[in-house]
Amino acid sequence: MRLRLLCCGAALLLLAACSSTPDESLYSDGSGQLGGPPGPISPDGTIGSADLNGGQPAPGTQEDLELTVGDRVFFDYDSTVLSPVATETLDRQGAWLKQFGSIVITVEGHTDERGTREYNLALGDRRATAVKNYLVALNIAPERILTISYGEERPADPGNDETAWSNNRRAVTVVTTVN
């Protein structure tokens, strides 16, 4: 019984933590299309183990990266230039990678479908490498950063309009291994 009460207490603490409105800028790179509020709490207010995980992601996980740092940056059409918003996100990623020094990441480079398939494989590779180079310049060891290009093969947004295409022109940082 005592143990159970303690659990509930911890859960309430977490609930309180997640109910404080997060700074929106933490969850997006300014496009307003990313992230969303942290993990859900069931509508009836019950607290279960799922809520313990959903309330606040475990530090050093992919979820933590997505929700508290921002896992992706966006690019203009046919561009690999990192925007000021993108470099802010990458600065946070750099700090996060220093905090969790055993994590190895893969940067996935993606494009929209408004180009040819093979060119887009090359473009996605250049985007992923642009992100890697920026993180390396922040003193993250290059051995900790793998890259892969998916070209236009794995859009995040299935839509057929400029909003969808801009969501798809992205580089996503993915936690690959934790040593």
Binding site: L121, A122, D125, R126, A128, T129, A130, K132, N133
Partner: peptide
């Protein structure tokens, strides 16, 4: 074929 190396194909 193309090969990508350090962001350059």
């Amino acid at each position: 074929m193309s090969q990508a190396e350090n962001g350059n194909s």
